[in-house]
Amino acid sequence: MNLKGRHLIDPNDFTLEELQQIIELGLKMYENPEKYSEVCKGKILGTLFYEPSTRTRLSFESAMLRMGGTVLGFSDANTSSVKKGESIADTIRCMDDYADILVMRHPREGAPLLASQFSTVPLINGGDGGHQHPTQTLTDLITIKYYKKDIKNLKVAFCGDLLFGRTVHSLLKTLSRFPGISFVLISPEELRIPYHLRDEIMNKHNVEIIEATSLEEHLCEIDILYMTRIQKERFFNEEDYVKLKDSYILSKGKLKDAKEDMLILHPLPRVNEISYDVDDDPRAKYFHQAALGVYVRMALMSTLLGVKGIC
């Protein structure tokens, strides 16, 4: 696998084989972190977060620090020259001299693709608006691989905001490339997946989709339940958000008919779509999912940096 110098903007940028190799490496790093504690010594990660983030930014920082590298960047566009009106292109033209690898989160869809056109170092999309979030997808895939051993022949349900949920879009797009995957898409009518994505999944990859509005109806037949938050920040008006925000709440009682080995995943942050009483259920894997995200980001960054002798 030679991904040295490549960008990761969209999960389709990598072949299935490349994605699986990153996941395998992430699992090795998880099992034996000490072995990799200095593989990025002398390397600098630049974090360009134009939109708030807790997990993604800190997960990236933790990943680089765990490999012996260092981190610089900003976590609030208001404290950078963006506030003065600097273009993305100009920011990148400087930042790629300051850092060896960049991660960018931006509220505008397509901003990381634009940034990658000006970057001489690998640039990773850390989430762009309601569009894509490929490293959350890597986090989801490593979790599925860890618990299910193989990413194939699974019925995966997505529940919540499927219209604006970038984590959903990336994972749907990627999972539809794996064999034997089918989807149950549970959302209010107003928050169904974008047409362009449905078109890609059904017509390009020929994957079966069931669309539903009830969470309980299909719970007994699914292997992975991917819950998502209704995102206040993606709505243009408060009224629409209030109407939909409590559409789905997964509680312990609702899990009684679910498979015993079903995985409950969530990209986090959670608000109220998963009751706290679910946290102790052995099927709830969302906190471990967030932990595994650090290791898959370690695998990703070391691979894009072309670190030798890690596989």
Binding site: S87, I88, A89, R108, E109, G110, L114, F118, D128, D199
Partner: peptide, 27 residues
């Protein structure tokens, strides 16, 4: 929400979607 609506550096290339309508996918 597309970057092309606010950044002059971003000029979208559109690709025709073969769905029978004249619809283009933004790059």
């Amino acid at each position: 929400r597309c970057i092309t609506s606010v950044d002059d550096y971003a000029e979208a290339e559109f690709t025709l979607v073969p769905n029978g309508k004249i619809q283009y996918r933004c790059s």
